[in-house]
Structure formats: structure tokens, C-alpha cells
Design a binder for these strands. Structure first.
Length: 222
DNA sequence: CCTTGATCATGG
DNA sequence: CCATGATCAAGG
């Protein structure tokens, strides 16, 4: 049975809090979804499971998961100490037609305005179904975080605009990084070349570094 | 041990 | 192909 969409943020948070401590196998059973042996071929399984349970709108849209609430849902794998195990994908990076694009008009800015973080045990030693959901965190970037995100975004976008996308590595940026985001390394999309013409490059996505998301979790539980 | 670059599934 | 959901796994 598909879950209804929460009517307001309060209901969303109440439902998210109710999931704390529960095993993924129980959430899966409640949604009539089978639990995979591992996530090797089901990398988005946990995220989609929680989306289903919380009544997020399914499908691939560059919109918030709870568009009527303006809230983006992110599950985040953590170790036994509560530290994120992976970086967090934010959105695909625009590589062409970016002249005049400002931080406030960017997808990264909008997606990170309001995020519901749902920590989930992610260590591979724990069977997927036995992994438990943690305490949810409703987050909005503070002044420092907003400044860090904007600076990284602007630096990366400037390099893309200058036709240096293929020279950008994941080491650029303090809290936000640019990395491949595609089915494989052979996938191509249009980008800006150094002479200003159009070339083909591997699609990229913006990711939040682990230290950044770790601070978000620490601030919430500190 | 950790990060970077690569990859998997699905829907439109 | 693009955008969603991410994790995998080789190498530094």
C-alpha cells in the first residue's frame, strides 16, 4: 500500500521520527518490497525505500521530494559512530548555457535550502535488512555553511565556464565537490571547451563531502 | 584507511 | 541521454 504524502513538515517529521530504531527489513515488509542481499546492484534501494515509507513523490524530477513542503529527502549511510560513510549526491552539474547563472538561481542552492536527513546504518558487515534507521534531522544551512557552499559552487562553475571541466577533480572545493555522475565513463554530454566552443565530456554531479555532512549530524546531536 | 573516479537501477 | 536514488572498489 502506497503511503500518503505528509500534509505538513510537522507530520513529515513525526513520521520520520517514528522510523528511528527500526530495521530496513521491517520497512520493506510494510511496503511489500523485497530486501536485496547487498546494494551492489541496488545502490539507490535504501533511499527509495525511505521515500516510499514517508510518502515522497516518486520519479526523477529536479524538484524537492516533498515539493509542497519544499523539503528534500536524503538518506545518509553512517558507521557505528554516526559518521557518514559516503559523500552525498546533490544534483547534476550544468555544463553549458551557464552564462549569468548565479548561486541563488542554481539547483544546488535550491536543493539544499531545506533537507530532511535520515541516517541509516551502512556498514557492509550488517546485512541490509538488519540495518537500522537513525534519528532524522531537518536541516537548513547556517550562515557559514551557506557561504562555504556558495564559494565552492562559484569556483567550480567558473572553471566550467572557462572550459576547464575536464581539469576539475574531486579535490576542488572545501565542502562541495564535482565528480562523474553517469552510467559509465563513456557517457558523454555537451560542455564548454577552452576556446569557447562546444565539446563532449563525461557528465558531472555536485556532491557534499563527508566532513560537511558529518558537521550537520554533529550539530544536530551536539 | 579514505577518497576519487566509476558504476548500477529505473523512469521519462 | 538526463535526472532520480546512491554505493562500489581500486589506488593513493
Amino acid at each position: 500500500m502506497a503511503k500518503s504524502s505528509p500534509k505538513d513538515i510537522h507530520e513529515l517529521m513525526q513520521r520520520a521520527h517514528d522510523l528511528a530504531g527500526i530495521r530496513l527489513a521491517d520497512i520493506a515488509a510494510d511496503n511489500q518490497i523485497s530486501v536485496p542481499e547487498n546494494l551492489r546492484r541496488d545502490k539507490g534501494w535504501v533511499g527509495q525505500l525511505i521515500e516510499s515509507e514517508l510518502g515522497a513523490l516518486a520519479g526523477s524530477k529536479p524538484q524537492p521530494d516533498f515539493i509542497h513542503l519544499g523539503v528534500e529527502l536524503k538518506t545518509i549511510p553512517i558507521d557505528c559512530k554516526g559518521k557518514p560513510l559516503e559523500t552525498t549526491y546533490v544534483t547534476v552539474a550544468p555544463l553549458v548555457n551557464i552564462q549569468g547563472l548565479s548561486w541563488q538561481d542554481s539547483v544546488v542552492f535550491h536543493k539544499l535550502q531545506h533537507v530532511l536527513w535520515v541516517p541509516v546504518e551502512g556498514e557492509r558487515s550488517i546485512p541490509v535488512g538488519e540495518r537500522r534507521i537513525g534519528t532524522p534531522i531537518l536541516w537548513q544551512p547556517n550562515a557559514l555553511q551557506a557561504q562555504q557552499l556558495q564559494q565552492d559552487w562559484e569556483e567550480i562553475m567558473e572553471l566550467i565556464a572557462l572550459g576547464k571541466v575536464d581539469k576539475i577533480t574531486a579535490r576542488h572545493g572545501e565542502v562541495l565537490q564535482l565528480r562523474p555522475k553517469a552510467a559509465n565513463s563513456h557517457t558523454l554530454t555537451e560542455s564548454i571547451a577552452e576556446d569557447g566552443s562546444i565539446q563532449l565530456s563525461n557528465p558531472r554531479g555536485f556532491y557534499l563531502k563527508i566532513e560537511f555532512t558529518q558537521q550537520i549530524l554533529n550539530n544536530a546531536f551536539g
